[in-house]
Design a protein around this nucleic acid. Structure first.
Lengths: 198, 198
DNA sequence: ACCGATAAATGCAGCGATTGCAACTATGCT
DNA sequence: AGCATAGTTGCAATCGCTGCATTTATCGGT
């Protein structure tokens, strides 16, 4: 529970410093215009060191995407087997959306940069595709299915991500004002009931 | 209908030559290992010229993605207003999937490279996101809605893309053997009916 | 406080994609 | 043929990113 040693603490410090500095510069000058060298200088590290903390420039904006995935798959893993998969998915994703509410300003900043920067958006989609695979894989296991046999897990995972992307897109378009969880619940419900009858 | 002038014909020739040569090399040596310089040499052009034909290396693999989107949005635009949006979407996407059937070997090659190369996959997702926006936009117009008001178009578009991605992923995982249109129809149907009752 | 082991930071050199610019060449048209 | 135009090429530079070797800082025990 403690901050471990000085080493760990410093590392975390540096990481946060890079994030803070980089986000600022991205907002002011734009993502593409800001170079790794710029960030490094502002964060008081060597350019080479940047890559010990983030694999790509894009990942600074998308830090903590991985954590969220872990939370989702974790929640799914505990899903009682008698419950419909879609309901479990809804619960799992909703818990993440709740965090979005709490961290609203922090996330809004990042999403705005993402929306304005194709390469960052592309990277986020790539990470989301990873989620999709991971979620589908968990669903497959939980249902006791064979890996490549049934398309159901893949479809459910893709649909869940679609619900999330749609909600998030709409939320962002509205400037992040409305309640995201309600929006997401609505999307999940509609997919649960079906898209034709409404 | 004619091949226009010599100029146009040569340009098309070069384009096809680049694609052919590049795909071959990607398959043999891998995407990342093959450099633009390699491709240019094999296609008998200057490295600089490559970028007059494709904006990025990834786009060689994903050529004709744009055409497909045009076909989809075109089909949507002709959708009779009394028909449910989801049905129209299904028809539009299905017509594209039919092409996939016809061009199976050609597309399979490309998808295989895509599946094996993160950066290509990322690029494809980026293009798909463009589709999602375009589709949502057409749906909004057709329904006579205001741009940012209703989340429905966004959700439908995202769901349609999800159906497509799931079908395609499953199809690819099975080595491209089965009938893609049937697979896609199934996914669309299930989303139409709802994901809980099954 | 001291010392070897280990993790982290740095510097350097290099690759490869991508771009802007200017010069050059082929094609289209009169 | 002869100009206007579109396409090709070469050149130089930027920038993200990587491998490798070196230096520096922290840790764990003594």
């Amino acid at each position: 529970m403690k901050s471990q040693g000085l080493r760990e603490r410093k590392k975390l410090d540096t990481r946060r410093r890079i994030e803070a500095v980089a986000l600022d510069m991205f907002e002011r000058g734009g993502f593409e215009t800001t170079t790794i060298e710029d960030i490094a200088a502002a964060a008081d590290i060597a350019p080479r060191t940047f890559f010990h903390y983030f694999p790509t420039k894009e990942d600074v904006v998308l830090a903590d995407y991985a954590d969220r995935l872990a939370r989702i798959t974790g929640a799914l893993a505990e899903w009682p087997t008698d419950e419909p998969a879609w309901t479990a998915l809804q619960r799992a994703f909703l818990s993440v959306a709740a965090d979005y509410e709490i961290e609203r300003p922090r996330l809004l900043r990042r999403f705005r940069i993402m929306a304005a920067t194709p390469s960052v958006y592309a990277r986020s989609l790539q990470l989301q595709a990873g989620w999709e695979d991971a979620v589908a894989s968990v669903l497959t296991q939980r249902a006791g299915l064979v890996a490549g046999g049934d398309i159901t897990p893949r479809l459910l995972a893709a649909a869940a991500l679609a619900a999330m992307r749609a909600s998030l897109g709409h939320w962002l378009a509205a400037g992040g004002k409305g309640p995201l969880p309600a929006q997401l619940t609505d999307c999940f419900d509609r997919l649960a009931r079906g898209l034709v009858a409404g």
